[in-house]
Nucleic acid binder design. Structure first.
Length: 574
RNA sequence: CGGGCCGUAGCGCAGUCUGGUAGCGCGAUUGGUUUGGGACCAAUAGGCCGUGGGUUCAAAUCCCACCGGCCCGACCA
């Protein structure tokens, strides 16, 4: 391709609304253009990037026997009612809904479990037809509460989702493993530094799930990992071994103390010298929403630790949880915020506690009365015995649950997520096949997503410098650019053309920069656009020499034309 | 949805406090000179100052409402 024929519009200045490197660079390079919040046009060079990545995804999925299909973007409400997800997605506000001419409610697909399950259910009647794995690569729509970071969190975005259908759990496990392997190959081929972490399965539900995280400071997810054991988990899911808190000793008689205006753990430590946070048990009131009811419940946590609301939601099998408001707290405990405790808590307020409080004695708790706290509280003696659950947010520095070594923390961009769904959707939607006994059974499903527009952005996040993007060769818009510095000089034009043709003949995805720009402008453009290998045909063209630049590291050397193709192939690892 | 902020030429911004001719840089167009780090000279084009209402002799500027957008938070296959 000749760059003179491609729409390229790099900006001299950073766009005003971009924060993170990938958004800033993709916008400045003119590769993405915003049309509304979280909605972007992909410029020709960016579309090449997306297509190259999508092709890698296809090749690796096809290798595992998956079938590419095209599913509708517009979906009828009834499918979502059948799976039980309409209300949740609409209430969460992320569903784009619309009505057709007849007034039938439809939505723009935020994901495709419903459609795919319906499709496969109609086609697959027998266990003999499985395993089946279908995927699609296309636009998805989510009216994100807060779109941001360019392609990282858009409202319209490109995604690959694959769905596997099997007759039993063992077959699902095999399908899952195949997809996991394919995912590893995909992200390796993109040159990404990624980690597979245990994850919460969230709104989509199901048994096990793992996320593929690209490590980057701008990542929206926090992950904890251990190099010794290989353990890695999203902080939403992570477990850890805790260092012991100070022992409370033999149970003593509870004391009630006036603590006016002392509300926080820090204030309590100052008020009661010698009582460390680890000997306190804070009690937080949560407003919990289930499908058919809402309730305020009390959750106890050791004073020096934090509640993990994802774990709390899962433990309670709730749709959502949020901290209770001051009014709700007063209604439930009779006390102002800051004095809630288990002692004398109303019987109709359920009480649960984190495992870190099991068997702990002589705790410091809120008094359930404004201005009072209790010392030497013993659970099950001075108050109800709570049920104990893992509700704690694991933190860096705590022990790895496998090796005990201190956990380390990093930020990650979620580029892939794989789930063992089981029969959650097939059962809800009555999607069944005939088993060997001739009895209908629900499909055992898995689902597997990759952010197709997000992954290239993540690649930029990981591969850039102060001058611009440094594309990994496998997804670069072109592997190599051949630029004539002065298109008015015939020897440069002729030589550049020759080199370009030779590279193409050698199988290099090359482009020719024949634009009538000054040399400086071309240098800047190519630094920003990030072609991995850059060849400049300039003042030494007549002598048969060119300049050879590797974008990563910006190493520049003079190379004779005769050696050029070999050098380019070597630089591309071929 | 809570908190903070912003809408002025294609992009980046000044002007708004203190009402009175709408500006700067980049980009674009034309002509000329250039050609190794976003060239130079000259000329030109380009604005319902987000929208609607109000105050005023007079509104980009003051007031109200709405719309759009950004950041923090909550939220989030």
């Amino acid at each position: 391709m000749r760059l003179s024929q491609i729409l390229i519009s790099t900006l001299r200045e950073d766009p005003a609304d971009a924060e993170i490197p990938s958004h800033r660079l993709l916008a400045r390079a003119g590769l993405i253009v915003k049309i509304a919040a979280g909605v972007y046009t992909y410029a020709p060079l960016m579309w090449r990037v997306v297509q190259k990545f999508a092709q890698i995804v296809r090749e690796e999925l096809n290798r595992e026997g998956a079938n590419e299909v095209m599913l509708p973007i517009i979906q009828p409400k009834e499918l979502w009612v059948a799976s039980g997800r309409w209300d949740r997605y609409v209430n969460d506000g992320i569903m784009f809904t619309l009505k057709d001419r007849k007034g039938t409610e439809m939505c723009l697909g935020p994901t495709h479990e419903e459609v795919m399950t319906t499709y496969v259910n109609a086609q697959v009647n027998s266990y003999k037809q499985m395993p089946v794995n279908c995927y699609q690569i296309q636009d998805k729509f989510r009216d994100e509460i807060r779109p941001r970071f360019g392609l990282m969190r858009g409202r319209e975005f490109i995604m690959m989702d694959a769905y596997s259908f099997d007759a039993d759990v063992a077959a699902l496990d095999a399908a899952y493993q195949k997809m996991r392997n394919a995912y590893c190959r995909i992200f390796e081929r993109c040159g990404l530094d990624y980690t597979v972490v245990q994850a919460d399965s969230g709104a989509i539900g199901g048994a096990g799930s793992e996320e593929f995280m690209v490590i980057a400071d701008s990542g929206e997810d926090s992950i904890l990992y251990c190099q010794q054991s290989g353990y890695a988990a999203n902080v939403e899911k992570a477990a850890s071994k805790l260092p012991d808190a100070p022992n409370g000793g033999e149970p003593k008689k509870m004391e009630r103390h006036a603590t006016p205006d002392v509300k926080t753990v820090a204030q309590l430590q100052a008020f009661f010298p010698g009582w460390e946070a680890g000997r306190m048990a804070k009690t937080l009131l949560y407003h919990v929403t289930w499908k058919a009811k809402v309730k305020v419940i009390a959750v106890m946590m050791r004073g020096d630790l934090e509640i993990n609301e994802v774990k709390l939601t899962n433990t309670l099998d709730a749709l959502s949880v949020r901290l209770a408001t001051d009014d709700e707290i007063k209604a439930a405990t009779g006390a102002e915020t800051g004095f809630a405790g288990p002692v004398g808590l109303r019987d109709d307020v359920p009480l649960i506690a984190d495992e870190s409080l099991r068997d702990r004695t002589n705790l410091l708790c809120g008094g359930n009365e404004s201005g009072f706290h209790c010392l030497n509280v013993n659970l099950g003696v001075d108050c109800r015995m709570p049920s104990f659950k893992d509700l704690r947010t694991a933190r860096a520095g705590e022990g790895c649950p496998i090796s005990g070594h201190p956990l380390q923390q990093a930020r990650g961009i979620e580029v892939g997520h794989i789930f063992k769904l089981g029969i959650k959707y097939s059962k809800a939607m009555s999607a069944t096949f005939m088993d060997q006994q001739g009895k209908p059974q629900p499909f055992v499903m898995g689902c597997y997503g990759i952010g197709v527009s997000r992954t290239p952005a993540a690649a930029v996040e990981q591969h850039h410098d102060e001058k611009g993007i440094v594309w990994p060769a496998s997804i670069a818009p072109f592997e190599c650019v051949v630029a004539m510095l002065d298109p008015k000089r015939d020897e440069q034009v002729v030589l550049a053309e020759q080199i370009y043709q030779k590279l193409k003949a050698a199988g290099v995805d090359a482009c020719l920069d024949d634009r009538p720009l000054s040399p400086g402008a071309k240098f800047k453009d190519h630094e920003l656009l990030g072609f991995p290998v850059q060849i400049f045909v300039g003042r030494r063209a007549a002598e048969g020499f060119t300049e050879f630049l590797l974008r990563r590291g910006m190493q520049k050397s003079e190379v004779a034309v005769a050696d050029l193709t070999a050098q380019v192939l070597a630089a591309l690892g071929r």
